[in-house]
Amino acid sequence: MAAKLPPVPPTLRSVQHYLKTATEHDGRDAAVSYYCRLYAVQKSLQIDKKSPDAVKFITTLMDHLEQAKKQNADNEAIHTETIGHAHIEQYALKLFLYADNEDRSSRFGKNVVKSFYTAGMLFDVLETFGELNDDIEKNRKYAKWKATYIHKCIKEGLQPQ
């Protein structure tokens, strides 16, 4: 289900990445889209729940989440957060391991950058379910660092080490 949202207000620009990941998963994995947007709502409420633009934006996002929950009545990962937690964690780890394997095999490409990047975003989304354990925390830092590093190497025509 594609989301038609108003533009992200300047105060909430940092949640834009999660909304982009949500949009990329619309039609591919409804639970991933749902929890990315849920995380974006949580973060937005922490950052700015006072300015009229932010209130309008969060309200629209919330409308969308409520609708998504109704439209995915048979999706257990959306309706039961413990299942959702496991689903997002497995999905993020799968992406992370794919990228890590490609990296260790010296196969660098935009898809590796994208996989590390998305895994990093989804490790953030896991905060929805509580504090991250040490392994996830480590993977999150590593995935984000690797995405930035390989991206920089590709851009500058350097061979990642």
Binding site: L45, K49, V55, M62, E66
Partner: peptide, 27 residues
């Protein structure tokens, strides 16, 4: 006054967003 009314309305809207999120997650 109008200002008090507006700020009460804004505060109610914020509470509403927080409780809407809580309800969504509990359903």
């Amino acid at each position: 006054s109008n200002t008090v009314g507006q700020s009460t309305a804004a505060s109610a809207e914020q509470d509403d967003l927080t409780s809407r999120l809580a309800r969504l997650r509990q359903q």
